[in-house]
Amino acid sequence: MKLLLNGEEKVLADGISVLDMLNALEIERRGIAVELNREVVPKGRHEETRLKEGDTVEVIRMVGGG
């Protein structure tokens, strides 16, 4: 299935969970946050939250800034 991840089109396994997506992309879960269709997905729900075709996902971290 196709979805939009951080502004890029990505092909991922059908019905993949947020947790499995992060693992597949080798993104460490410390200090990150995930937003699915403009709503934050809390860390405690990464495993149960499944993605679907056409979803818009943002994964953010902290960087240097003022």
Partner: peptide, 27 residues
């Protein structure tokens, strides 16, 4: 202060938090 930005998907995953001691500083 720190800023919020997208994670790089190109596997350059170094985190700012690997460098800043969060016990010492309030972020």
């Amino acid at each position: 202060t720190v800023a919020v930005r997208r994670v790089n998907l190109d596997r350059t995953k170094e985190s700012l938090l690997d460098h800043i001691d969060t016990d010492k500083y309030t972020l």
